[in-house]
Simulated assay, not measured.
Amino acid sequence: MKGYIRKILGLGAALEPPESIELPLPTLWLLGNTGAGKSSLVRALTGEAEVGSGFAPCTRTARAFDFPAGHPVLRFLDTRGLGEAGYDPAEDLATAEKGSHAVLVVMRMDDPAQGAVADTLRRVRARRPKVPVLVVHTGGDLVRDAGAQARARGQAQAVMEAAARSALPAVTLSLPEDMDSAEGIDDLRARLGELLPELTLLLMRERDWSEEAARFATLRPMVLWYAGAAGASDAAPLVGSVSVPALQGALLHALARRHGLEWTTARIALFASALGTGAILQYAASHMLRQGAKLVPVYGQTLGAAAAAAASFAATYALGRAASAWLYRAARGETLDSEDLRHLYDEAFTRARHANR
């Protein structure tokens, strides 16, 4: 067990990811008429004060908003041609298909003219039957009468479900100019997490650590590269017992270099103490059990391997997330409270585990 921990924390192979890591941006495709509240929706989800001017043309009939602007991890695609004569969504759909995505059908409850939106959704579902779709009814603050609101929402929902040929999840939002009084955002986040679990990871807000979070955004592709490599290598019997700890150690060395530090024995001990050796021991023990489970005929070669890969992906990502926060402060002569560090690790592990399902 001690040897395993040494591999994780100190003896990682000198393995570097490719110099240029290009990860497709997960894309939320916003389908809706002009004035449906798409920009307000993005502003509510991201917390960005200025969204409209941040959209940039990406096709002849669509524009994109990348979040965050400097080092984006998520893209919102706004289709602008709905309702225009001769509009063909094929080019916009091809753009959305570059990454994991879902379609958000955005409809204002006081706008009954949704024919173009329904036609586009029908074509999208014909081309990609399994694409996740969420109906977002905006204008909850504009239609205050409960009966009128229920009728408007029900009629619009029925039109979209007929176009999709299936039942569709839906949320209702109130998006006034004063976002502090917006309603339904938590429900929207929860629904998005159900449809596309990795979005909960991408939209994770870290308001107290904004500068550190911005720094991690630049390192996130590298962390994901190591996490992906660890998950892939752990799918094979016995290979993961050697490769996963080496990859995790390599990740920690690489992160230290990115923060201008050396991953010394003393620094290893400080980080291990802050994170808690109990958490590392628990993961090491469970990892060894998973290696043994992969040798079981049939089960180990399918379910056991998949579980091992998912756990190694999540643990490697969480280790990288925690180490980045700890190294960020160490480079500035600061310390990170152990409880905060463990909470960050646990939260990153949980969300990465869900995202990898």
Score class of each variant (00 low, 15 high):
R290E: 07
A310C: 11
A214S: 10
P297H: 08
A230Y: 00
H253F: 07
L192Y: 02
A266D: 09
I280M: 10
A230D: 01
Y226W: 12
S273I: 14
T277N: 14
E194N: 12
S181R: 14
V242G: 13
P237M: 05
T277M: 13
A284M: 06
D180C: 15
I185Y: 08
A306C: 15
G240K: 00
L255K: 00
V296K: 06
A230S: 02
A308N: 06
A236M: 07
A235D: 09
G278E: 05
E177T: 12
L247S: 00
G292D: 09
I280S: 04
A217L: 13
A285W: 12
T264G: 10
K294S: 02
A279K: 13
G228D: 01
R207P: 10
S286E: 09
S286Y: 10
A279D: 09
G276V: 04
G228W: 00
A250D: 02
M288W: 12
E262F: 09
I185T: 09
L196Y: 02
M179P: 12
A272K: 04
Q291P: 10
L192W: 02
P221R: 04
A305G: 10
V242R: 11
S210F: 11
D234H: 03
T200P: 06
R191M: 12
Y226G: 02
A305N: 11
A182M: 07
A305W: 06
D234L: 03
P176I: 07
Q291E: 15
E194V: 11
F271W: 02
S273R: 14
A284T: 04
T277E: 11
L192A: 04
L270W: 08
A250Q: 03
Y283S: 03
A254P: 01
T200R: 06
H259I: 03
A250M: 04
A285T: 12
H259P: 01
V223S: 02
Q301Y: 09
L175W: 03
A190T: 13
W263D: 02
I185R: 06
A309W: 01
Q248M: 04
M288P: 13
V244R: 00
A284F: 03
P197D: 05
P221W: 04
P197C: 05
E183G: 09
E262I: 11
R205L: 15
D180M: 15
G228A: 07
A235N: 05
G300K: 06
G228S: 06
P197L: 07
Y283N: 07
M288I: 14
R205E: 15
R191A: 08
A310I: 09
A274I: 10
A285N: 13
T277R: 14
I268W: 10
A229E: 03
L255D: 00
A246S: 08
L251R: 00
V296E: 07
A306R: 10
A307N: 10
A285H: 14
A246L: 09
A190L: 13
L201I: 12
S174P: 06
A182V: 07
A213F: 09
P297G: 04
G184R: 08
R207A: 15
E177P: 14
G278S: 11
A266F: 11
A293W: 04
G260R: 05
L201E: 04
I185P: 05
A229Y: 03
M288T: 13
R191F: 07
A213K: 05
I185A: 07
A230K: 00
A285C: 14
P221H: 05
L255V: 01
